[in-house]
Design a protein around this nucleic acid. Sequence first.
DNA 1: ACCGAAACCTGACAATTGTCATATTTTTAA
DNA 2: TTAAAAATATGACAATTGTCAGGTTTCGGT
Lengths: 228, 228
Amino acid sequence: MSRCENCIIRQFNSLRAMSKEELKKVSDTKVSKTFKKGDAIFEEGDRLDGVFCVRDGVSKLSKLSSNGKDQIIKLASKGEILGQRSVIAEESANLSAIAIKDMDVCFIPKESILHTLNTNPNFAVEVLRHMAKDLRDADDVIVNISQKTVKQRIAEAFIYLKDNFGEDELGFLNLSLTREDMSNVVGTATESTIRIISEFKKKGIIETSGKKIRILNIPKLETVISGL
Amino acid sequence: MSRCENCIIRQFNSLRAMSKEELKKVSDTKVSKTFKKGDAIFEEGDRLDGVFCVRDGVSKLSKLSSNGKDQIIKLASKGEILGQRSVIAEESANLSAIAIKDMDVCFIPKESILHTLNTNPNFAVEVLRHMAKDLRDADDVIVNISQKTVKQRIAEAFIYLKDNFGEDELGFLNLSLTREDMSNVVGTATESTIRIISEFKKKGIIETSGKKIRILNIPKLETVISGL
DNA sequence: ACCGAAACCTGACAATTGTCATATTTTTAA
DNA sequence: TTAAAAATATGACAATTGTCAGGTTTCGGT
């Protein structure tokens, strides 16, 4: 089994602020796990006794609202640490984490994390910086959802998917969400998303092939986002 | 001038995790300031060279959206620390802080904060816990804004104002927002807010006297929130 | 290759929310 | 106190979005 000390993923998250010794301890207690598309890594309300470091795949972090719909708060992929907020706050999970692409993760028991937090200020500050960034992102999402139209938000979501997950050789988005997941990201009804995607197709802004989506005209997308 | 070591406000925020010595240093470098209603403590994009500890009054933290409307992300009062996120992330402020009730704050230069963060893990973890809570709150706001109607959100806002800022002897809310600020909290047009408040008045759910608002029927408000 | 389930699509309509225009009331400041 | 400015209020209407009801297509497993 691979050792954390040699793990490249580490470079992308706060674990890089751990000392050699701390990493060794983490490595000794960690457990590799895999999750298939659709599997839950954890669910809202679960007590987490550790965090999950994503080595491969993608997970959606969502929260069930009182009207029965899921709201996707974030998409997490390689390098992200899941469950950190709950472990630090010593609360049960406020979000569910469901795999939307087969995942390869390391489970790290919370003891190593909490101990390092309490003894290594570098690590604590590194985690703090990450959380500060998440918080700013959340603020931006709040503004977007409440001040932009559904069409603008969907256009933004495509740009987001391109920028964060990239495109394959043929220009198709590496990560294609179902219309329903897309709706849960932007906070709207599935039918609305379908209609707007159809409209984008008719206008030559995007193109689909099977369930893959290719962005054809970024300037037009930007125009939609700007709301003109 | 009063000393941080004796400041009661400290109990409510992460400064309580500082040692006597650290507090003394903070106290020596801090500067008391007052802001009148309408004054900006700082604005979106400002580089902050410290944080602001609120001793009295209330501030709205808001972000301007591309369509020219403000979105209020949070209302901060006694005990809150403003600007912490930006100082920690070493970024310019992502939000503006405007006083909505005359304020009495202490400005604490970032050096003391950052130095303590890097040397006192207790303090770092305490700050982390606070930020973890803010992040969860932000997640909840995202779900609320995208999945609930304007009417539900306004009803929730009244409960929020009552729970967080309390009522005076006569049962009037201690903090009354203008209709415009209320709109910017729930993310809707001012006219919509006015209409819904009128409706609540007609239904005997709330009552107004001048610019003060009194909640008359909490169960009815809860019913509105539940969406039946 | 086939079946059932899930995903996708479209129309028709209703509900919600935003915009504009215009009063009225309240607050503020000279 | 009094005039100007800001906040509140309401109507009429348009735009956006949601819901329901029916389709078709695509996909995964046997």
